Amino acid sequence: MKYTVKSPKVLQMLYPKRLWRLDSTEKVIYLTFDDGPIPEITPWVLETLKRFDAKATFFCIGDNVRKHPEIYRELIQEGHRVANHTMHHVKGWKTPLLDYLRETESCQNLMEAGSDGTEISKLFRPPYGQLRSNQSKALQKKGYKIVMWDILSADFDLQLSPEKCSENVIKHAKEGSIVVFHDSLKAAPRLQVALPAVLKEFSERGFAFKCIP
């Protein structure tokens, strides 16, 4: 499995309209969670964040919102930001443009319908980080802000120890970093060790954890 923990500067320069991190001199980190919400792990994430007075941004799969509307509403009620991760977690490089836009719009419509009147952001993260140029341009025309990341916890990597997952974030994150975790069954064994460790370490350093604006 090939990936880099820190997003290469060259990628950030190639795609400057995508959000990779937030310029900040404040001690703020932006935790993000992809692929939920699901009952097996998302409620645990919420309880863990609450212990540290931390807010985060959840990039939701529309089909999981459909299946677990009560957990989705809890994300909003707890003051976190919900955002779009397509309806079925599709790969941008393998999905035709119109199908990709339908996936995105279906997810957005479902999130808005289930929000009890709360305004839903148009933040969007492409599954797997895969997005073709025509998809990116079409989404931006529709008002979406494409959110990438500068730090990958790699909690999805089955070969990675939970401690290494923690280290990936603790070693590299800094002011304004956007960090990726996953509230998924696959990531859970590493997430359940890494998330509390990251929250504890950076809280002790005087950092706050906020939603992506």
Rank of each mutant, 00 (worst) to 15 (best):
F202L: 08
D63P: 11
K9V: 15
E74D: 11
F207H: 05
T25Q: 14
K50A: 13
T95M: 09
Q130H: 15
Y100C: 04
I170G: 12
D116C: 05
T57H: 10
E40R: 01
Y3G: 09
Q130R: 14
E26Y: 11
R51N: 11
R21I: 09
K94I: 01
V90N: 04
S177C: 07
K186L: 07
L199S: 12
F156M: 15
G129M: 11
M13V: 15
L19D: 09
G114C: 08
Q12V: 08
L101R: 01
H85R: 02
F58V: 00
A208T: 14
R21Q: 14
A154V: 09
G117H: 05
L139R: 04
P37N: 06
G36Y: 03
H89C: 04
S184Q: 02
I76W: 09
S153H: 03
V180R: 01
R125C: 11
D183K: 01
D53T: 12
F52C: 04
A194N: 05
R81D: 03
V169H: 08
K17N: 13
Q12E: 14
D63I: 07
P37T: 04
I120C: 13
W44G: 06
S184A: 08
Y72G: 12
P37D: 03
L75F: 05
L46M: 05
K210G: 04
G143F: 09
V90G: 03
Y15I: 08
I120Q: 12
R18L: 15
S166R: 10
T32A: 07
K17G: 09
I178K: 05
R81H: 03
S161T: 15
L139K: 02
K145W: 01
A56W: 00
H80Q: 00
N84H: 02
L19I: 15
A154Y: 10
S133V: 12
Q130W: 12
